[in-house]
Amino acid sequence: MHRFAKPSVFLKLASAIMPWAIGITVVTLAVGLYLALVASPADYQQGDTVRIMYIHVPAAWMGLFCYVGMAICGAMSLIWKHPLADIAARATAPIGATFTALCLITGSLWGEPMWGTWWVWDARLTSMLILLFLYLGYMALVNAFDDSERGSKAGSALALVGVINVPIVKFSVDWWNTLHQPASVARMGGPSIDPSMLWPLFLIAIGFTGYYVIVLIVRVRLELNERRIRALQLGGVGQSVADQHHLAVPAKQAGAGE
């Protein structure tokens, strides 16, 4: 397994995936947005506010999906000390946090006209807010230490324990009575959404996944470069050059964890 996760192999694979990811993302988002905003019908109860769903629900899915990915990578980094897994977890966090924040904000913008409130402390909304805090906590923790390996350990532990929150988000609407309605897509007996409204939902969800792949690759490349810079500073000409040229990474951090 380690052979496949070598950075050089990853970079080759990433270069091969990138054009496909960009193509799929652009096409699905373009068609998805057209369906979402123009071609799909208004809801019989909620009118045009139902169009907020096409952003809100895929963003919620991505928030959960990214968290699971981040926790798995965190576990791999914790147990097998896998540097690439650690990098992937760090790269995923801001993307997942962005989607989770988008889910909360668009939910607010949907709740105000339909429910009559921007926010309530029901189980679904509260557990989703906790998901955002878990992302923020992870990002703060991995950067809180001078020694980046210690940061990874602490962050991965948080990510791993926080995974409990994922099923809580999903089933909160079944376990408690909430203002938020029960699941519409992943439910017993099939989706309770008309097919004309499911298409834009799925297309935008695929588009968001493609976007995640693109940004993930960019951020992993970025992090690999920065680690290489740190290692060169430490193993190469050393501190004097780094200081002289004001390179981005402080010498104290250089090479940490290698």
Binding site: P41, A42, D43, Y44, Q45, Q46, V50, M53, M114, W115, G116, T117, V120, L179, Q181, P182, A183, S184, R187, S192, I193, D194, S196, M197
Partner: peptide
Amino acid sequence: SEVLAKHDENYMPREVAD
């Protein structure tokens, strides 16, 4: 003092509802 609407999980166009 506050009334909130709770909707169900069904989404459909008006024609389908009719």
